[in-house]
């Protein structure tokens, strides 16, 4: 009997591989997923950092929108930076399509361009903010952490989003990966 959890990182584009060490250190299995047959094998999704515009185009071009929307109803999802943008209810700068999994408004590149990218300590763990978005408005989500006066780590039900990158930190597993994998465990039980 194998009840190891399998966490799928959507691998259309972006920072996929850096999750492997964190997921494995938290006792789960890492899979890079691109197609429906991949999605069927996993217990939860990570929508990784990258370029949200590119990911949206690829999701459309490979006809994955409805497939992913259906998958997301059944599984926990954690969006990071670009992934958080895909999960938001409303996206600004520019406005764009999103899955609306979390009732938040998110503004792209809201700290500025690469010159404003920075490292900060969130819950005692150093993480990277890279051309990061800002969550400007939330409705009924639990705010796990704030930074410079804005929520940067939020969750509601089976969904979670961070505007920063814990996967680029070398100490594994990050508390965010650990938290998400615990969430997946609890979701499987309930």
């Amino acid at each position: 009997m194998n009840n190891k959890l399998h966490i799928g990182v959507l691998a259309l584009q972006g920072a996929v591989q850096p999750h492997k060490a964190h997921i494995e250190a938290a006792g789960a299995g890492f899979c890079a997923v691109k197609t429906l047959s991949d999605f069927k094998k996993i217990d939860a999704f990570i929508l990784p950092g990258g370029e949200s515009t590119t990911m949206l185009k690829l999701i459309d071009r490979f006809d994955l929108w409805d497939i992913l929307a259906e998958q997301f109803k059944k599984k926990p999802v954690w969006g990071i930076c670009a992934g958080a943008i895909l999960m938001a209810k409303e996206v600004l700068n520019p406005t764009q399509k999103s899955f609306g999994l979390l009732p938040v408004t998110i503004e792209r590149n809201a700290y500025g361009r690469q010159l404003e990218s920075h490292i900060a300590t969130i819950k005692g763990y150093d993480v990277s903010f890279i051309r990061a978005p800002i969550i400007t408005n939330t409705n009924n989500v639990s705010i796990v952490a704030e930074h410079k006066g804005n929520p940067v780590w939020v969750e509601q039900g089976q969904y979670m989003a961070t505007t920063f990158h814990p996967e680029l930190t070398f100490n594994t597993p990050s508390p965010m990966h650990q938290h998400f994998i615990n969430k997946v465990k609890n979701f499987k039980i309930s």
Binding site: L12, G14, G50, S117, D126, L168
Partner: peptide, 22 residues
């Protein structure tokens, strides 16, 4: 300099975000 030796350089971090693309 990064504030922490434990974190990938923020400059290379942006390159990570560009992976798998054109």
């Amino acid at each position: 300099k990064n504030s922490s030796e434990n974190v990938m350089n923020i400059k290379t971090g942006l390159a990570e975000m560009l992976k798998g693309g054109v």
